[in-house]
C-alpha cells in the first residue's frame, strides 16, 4: 500500500494525529466493552454501572436465546440473502445495459441515484396497504419487497460504476472469439467485476440486515427480523437491562466478525463505487 508521506510532518502533528486515533479507538471500544459487562451482570449489579469486578451470570444470555432472537437473526439473514441475490442478478444485468449501451441516457442514472435517497416514509405506507390487501402483512415477503426498494438501486449504482471502469476490449475480444453477447456478459464481464460485485453485495446485505423502519411497520409480529426483535428489548426495568445488553450484542457480534474479515475489500469496493458520485 502506498502512503502519501511527501509532506514531512512535525512531531507535534504526528503526536496529535496518533492521540486522536487512540482517543477514537477508545470511544469505539468502551461502549462495546461496557455493553458486554452489562450482559453478564445481574439486575442488582446493573444498578451499579461502575462495577468492574463481579461474578458473571449467564442468565441474560439464556433469556435472550429463549426469546427467539436467533430465529430473528435467521429471518434477517434470509431477507438479506434473498434481497441481495435478486438485486445482484437483476442489478448487474441492468447496470451493464446502462453502462455499456447508455440505455436511457443520463436520466436512467439519475433515476437510480434518486431512488437511493427516497425517504422511506414515502414508500412504506403503500407497501403496508398492498401487503394487507394480499394478506402478506407480517410476512418476510413484504419485507423483502420493501428492502428491494433501497438495496436494488444501491447495488445497481455500484455496479454501473464498476462496469464503467471495466475495459471494453476484453468483452469485445470475447465476442470475436465466438461468444454471444449474453455469454460474453456472463463469462467474461462478470468475472472482471466479481470483486466489485462482492463488495456491493456485502454492502447491500448490511443495509438490509440493519433496517428497522420497514421491518417494524411491515412485519412487527411473528416475522420480526433481528432489529425489530432487538427493539422489543427496549426496557428500563433493571431486571431486564442485562437481557437488552445481550440482545444488542447479538446484533453487534456477527457484524464485527464479518466486517473484520471483509473490510479491506469492502472498503475498496465502496470507495471505488461511491467516490465517483
Amino acid at each position: 500500500m502506498t502512503t502519501l508521506n511527501s509532506t514531512r510532518l512535525k512531531p507535534t502533528w504526528t503526536l496529535a494525529g496518533n492521540s486522536l486515533l487512540i482517543l477514537m479507538a477508545l470511544s469505539v471500544f468502551l461502549p462495546f466493552f461496557w455493553l458486554s459487562l452489562g450482559s453478564f451482570k445481574t439486575g442488582a449489579q446493573l444498578n451499579n454501572p461502575a462495577l468492574l469486578l463481579f461474578k458473571p451470570t449467564l442468565e441474560n444470555w439464556k433469556e435472550v436465546l429463549r426469546s427467539g432472537v436467533l430465529e430473528s437473526a435467521y429471518r434477517s439473514a434470509t431477507v438479506g440473502l434473498v434481497t441481495v441475490s435478486l438485486s445482484v442478478v437483476i442489478g448487474s444485468m441492468g447496470a451493464y445495459a446502462i453502462s455499456r449501451y447508455k440505455t436511457g441516457g443520463s436520466s436512467t442514472r439519475f433515476g437510480i441515484l434518486a431512488a437511493q435517497v427516497l425517504p422511506p416514509a414515502v414508500l412504506v405506507f403503500p407497501f403496508l396497504e398492498v401487503s394487507y390487501k394480499f394478506r402478506l402483512n407480517d410476512t418476510l415477503f413484504a419485507v423483502i419487497i420493501s428492502h428491494l426498494s433501497f438495496v436494488l438501486p444501491v447495488i445497481t449504482w455500484f455496479l454501473i460504476g464498476f462496469f464503467d471502469a471495466a475495459p471494453k476490449e476484453v468483452e469485445e475480444q470475447a465476442l470475436v472469439d465466438g461468444l454471444s453477447r449474453f455469454q460474453a456478459f456472463r463469462k467474461v464481464v462478470i468475472p472482471q467485476v466479481a470483486p466489485g460485485i462482492g463488495a456491493a453485495a456485502v454492502f447491500g446485505f448490511v443495509l438490509s440486515w440493519n433496517d428497522l423502519f420497514y421491518a417494524l411497520i411491515l412485519a412487527p409480529g411473528n416475522s420480526a427480523t433481528l432489529p425489530v426483535k432487538i427493539a422489543s428489548f427496549n426496557t428500563f426495568r433493571g431486571v431486564e437491562l442485562g437481557a437488552m445488553c445481550a440482545a444488542i450484542l447479538v446484533a453487534v457480534i456477527p457484524v464485527l466478525i464479518v466486517s473484520f474479515f471483509i473490510q479491506k475489500r469492502l472498503v475498496r469496493g465502496i470507495s471505488g463505487g461511491a467516490v465517483k458520485y
Binding site: 479507538a25 469505539v28 455493553l35 448490511v206 440486515w209 444488542i248 453487534v252 464485527l256 466486517s259
Partner: peptide
C-alpha cells in the same frame, strides 16, 4: 494500519437500533 482502519470503521456496520439502545443504556 489495517487493524486501526477496520476497528475504527466498525460502528457504521452495526444496526442503528442496537446503537440507539446501547447509548440509551450508557
Amino acid at each position: 494500519r489495517n487493524f486501526t482502519r477496520s476497528f475504527l470503521l466498525t460502528p457504521m456496520f452495526v444496526t442503528p437500533i442496537a446503537i440507539g439502545l446501547m447509548f440509551r443504556f450508557l
